[in-house]
């Protein structure tokens, strides 16, 4: 047991653990929507855009969270606007918008401002450097995200399932897409410190994929994805402490291990129930139409 309790005597470890579990839960929660909206690359792209905004804030001597948050939110809105033109998919919109926002940050760095150490922490995560203020920020964003989603549960579900039909049924899809962009940018902003911008994409995808292998219910998927994210954070921080490796990497690798376990569970369940469920007539129809 001392293996588990020994690191807890250090305040920095307790902070790191709390931050990682909160971040894991938050990104796991958001991951359900990200994956079901087929926006798996948005975490990767937006985190880079936020990094660009963070650099801008640093150069201007303004609050990191404020500038990076606004930058990320604007990028998320731009992705949504480009994707809604239906001329290109969300993946292309993410590619164009977020690389531009990131490139702006790189431009500022290349203009001679030296902050290599902060830059490395932002890229790969530094959970051991988390302060009480950071934890408070993560907690506030988590509470806001969960409360908004809780209140507008059916609207978010409908917009995620079929935004066009949702609009016919009176759901204000524009409002809920904007809210989602805001919540996503906020989640990535507070997660960047812990997981690092290069690894945040995994934190915003893997828990939901794990959950999808375990269930066919949206509610249950939301719960499992949140738990899988929290577990990745918890075990990842312990692994980071004992292996002496970057926290972002260990958190993501724990998530990847959960993915392998979930895949094995799914495979075993399908074998136990005989054959894989036969495709429905509509799926067959769709498959033939695609061909």
């Amino acid at each position: 047991m001392s293996f588990l309790t020994a690191p807890l005597q250090y305040e920095f470890f307790r902070n790191a653990l709390l931050a990682a579990v909160l971040i894991g839960s938050l990104t796991g929660f958001m991951a359900t929507f990200v994956v079901l909206r087929k926006m798996s690359y948005v975490g990767h792209g937006l985190s880079h855009a936020i990094l660009g905004g963070g650099v801008l804030g640093y150069v201007l001597g303004l609050n990191f969270y404020l500038i990076a948050g606004i930058w990320g939110f604007l990028a998320a809105l731009a992705i949504d606007a480009v994707a809604r033109t239906r001329r290109v998919g969300a993946d292309a919109a993410i590619g164009v918008v977020t690389t531009a926002a990131f490139a702006f940050g790189v431009l500022l760095i290349s203009r001679g401002h030296s902050f290599a150490r902060n830059f490395e922490a932002a890229l790969f995560g530094n959970v051991l450097g988390v302060t009480t203020g950071d934890i408070l920020m993560i907690a506030v964003v988590s509470v806001v995200v969960v409360t908004v989603t809780f209140l507008a549960y059916w609207q978010f579900l409908f917009v995620t399932f079929d935004a066009e039909v949702a609009s016919v049924y009176g759901v204000k899809t524009g409002v809920f897409n904007t809210l989602f962009s805001l919540m996503l940018a906020g989640s990535i902003l507070v997660s960047a410190q812990v997981v690092g911008v290069t690894l945040i994409a995994a934190a915003l995808v893997t828990p939901a994929v794990v959950a999808r292998f375990m269930t066919s219910s949206f509610r249950v998927m939301l719960a499992i994805s949140t738990l899988a994210g929290a577990l990745s954070g918890l075990l990842g921080v312990f692994a980071s402490y004992y292996v002496d490796a970057a926290s972002g990497a260990t958190i993501v690798l724990v998530g990847s291990s959960l993915f392998v376990l979930a895949l094995g569970y799914r495979y075993a369940r399908e074998r136990r129930s005989g054959q894989r469920a036969a495709p429905s007539p509509t799926e067959l129809d769709a498959a033939f139409k695609t061909e």
Binding site: L36, W154, Q155, L157, F158, T160, F161, D162, A166, Y169, G170, V171, K172, R212, T215, S216, S217, F218, V220, M221, S280, T282, E283, D285, A286, K289
Partner: peptide, 21 residues
Amino acid sequence: NTIDWMFPITVEEAVLLGNAS
């Protein structure tokens, strides 16, 4: 054929979406 059949949603949830707003 516009429905996402892989989306995790039950019959009950799909019907209740009709009153989502």
